[in-house]
Design a protein around this nucleic acid. Structure first.
Lengths: 195, 195
DNA sequence: GTCTATAGGTGGATAGAC
DNA sequence: GTCTATCCACCTATAGAC
C-alpha cells in the first residue's frame, strides 16, 4: 500500500460506492457483481478478489453506511444545540439520500431481510438501534428543555419517528417525488413542537 | 370452466396465493417461477401457461391485493362509524399482514420499484392513492365530528399515517417483532385523538 | 491486483407432446 | 392444463496466468 494522491480513490472504495448506489436503488437482489464490474470496467473476478462473496460486500456496505451516518449525527450534535434543529437536520439527512431515487440503504435491506446472510441482518438492526438511540436522546433532551412535547418514553417516540421517515422514503420514491417525503417529515416534527 | 366444489381452489388462485406470500417475504427479485412451481408441485412451464411473464404475474398480484384491501376498507366502513375506531381497525389490518413475517405487498414492491415493469409500478401507486384517499376521508370526517385533532389538510395527514405504518412494518420485520409495529401504530393514533 | 477462462447452477421463457 | 425438454442469458464463485 502506497501513499495515494488526493484525487485517487482506492478500488475498494469505488466498488463500495457503486454497489451502495445499486443496492439503494435496485435492492440487494436487484444488482449483480456483473453490474458493478461493468460500471467500473473491471472484471467480476477482480471484484471477488476484494470481496470474496456478495454477503461480504453487503456487510462492508452496511458497516460503512452506519459509520457515515454516525459521523453525520456527530456533526449535527456539534453544530446544533436545539432539539428541534437537530431533528430538522436529521430529516434533511434522509431527504438528501432520497434525491437520486435512493432509498435508505438499511431501509432497503430491511425489505430484503429474509434473503440476507445473518451478519448483514444484524448490522441492519444495529443501524436502526443507533438511530433510535440518537433520536431518543434528542427527544428526551428536547422535552426536558421544554422545546418538545410528546407522551411516553423518548425511545418509543424515537421509533415512531424512525419508522415514519423510513416509510416516507419508501412511499415517496414510488412517486419519484421528494416533496412527498419533506412534507411528511415537516408534519412529524411540527407535531412535536412545544408551542 | 365448470362449477367447482367449495373445497377446490383454482390453480390460478393457488399460484397467486403462493406468489403473493413469496413476494411479501422475499421481494419481487427474491423469488422465482421455480419456487412457486416447486411449492405447488407443478412445473415452471405450467406456470407460464397461466402467467406468460413474471411481470404479468406481478400485475395480477397487485391488482388482487388492491381489491382485497378495498374490500377490507369497505367492511370497516360498514362496521364502524367512529373515525378513531376505523383507524384502529385499519392499523390492525396491517398488523395482520405483518404476522407471518410478511410485509405489505405494495410496501415491498415500492422497495423493488426501479426493477418493476411500468404497469406494476402504476398499480402500486394506485394502491397508495386508494389508501390515502380512504384515510383522508376518515380523517376529514373525524375532525369535523370533533373526534380527531390535527393541523392542515386531511389528505396530507393521511400521507403521514400511511408512510408511518408502511415504515413501521418495514422496521418491525427486521426485528421479527410485531409489537414494534403495534406500539408505533398506537402512538400515531393516540396523537390524533381530540381529548 | 487484474485478467481469461470456466465451472456449476438458476433465471425467465418457449416448443411441442399428451 | 400439465408435462418433458430445451434455450440462452445471467448468476456467484473459483483456478491459475500475468
Amino acid at each position: 500500500m502506497r501513499a495515494s494522491a488526493a484525487s485517487e480513490i482506492a478500488t475498494v472504495d469505488r466498488i463500495l460506492d457503486v454497489a451502495e448506489r445499486l443496492v439503494q436503488t435496485l435492492g440487494f437482489n436487484g444488482f449483480s457483481y456483473g453490474d458493478v464490474a461493468g460500471e467500473l470496467r473491471i472484471t467480476k473476478a477482480a471484484l471477488h478478489y476484494h470481496f470474496p462473496t456478495k454477503g461480504a460486500l453487503g456487510s462492508r456496505l452496511v458497516a460503512r453506511y452506519g459509520e457515515a451516518f454516525r459521523g453525520a449525527l456527530a456533526e449535527i450534535d456539534a453544530a446544533e444545540s436545539e432539539a428541534r434543529r437537530k431533528l430538522a437536520r436529521y430529516a434533511r439527512l434522509h431527504a438528501g439520500v432520497l434525491r437520486g431515487n435512493r432509498m435508505c440503504l438499511c431501509g432497503m435491506l430491511a425489505a430484503d431481510q429474509a434473503t440476507l446472510p445473518r451478519e448483514m441482518r444484524a448490522r441492519v438492526r444495529a443501524f436502526f438501534d443507533a438511530n433510535e438511540a440518537w433520536l431518543g436522546g434528542v427527544l428526551e433532551h428536547g422535552r426536558r428543555a421544554g422545546e418538545l412535547r410528546f407522551d411516553g418514553a423518548p425511545r418509543e417516540q424515537a421509533r415512531v419517528l424512525l419508522s415514519a421517515l423510513e416509510g416516507a422514503m419508501l412511499v415517496a420514491r414510488s412517486y419519484g417525488d421528494v416533496a412527498r417525503f419533506t412534507s411528511v417529515a415537516e408534519r412529524l416534527l411540527a407535531a412535536l413542537a412545544a408551542d
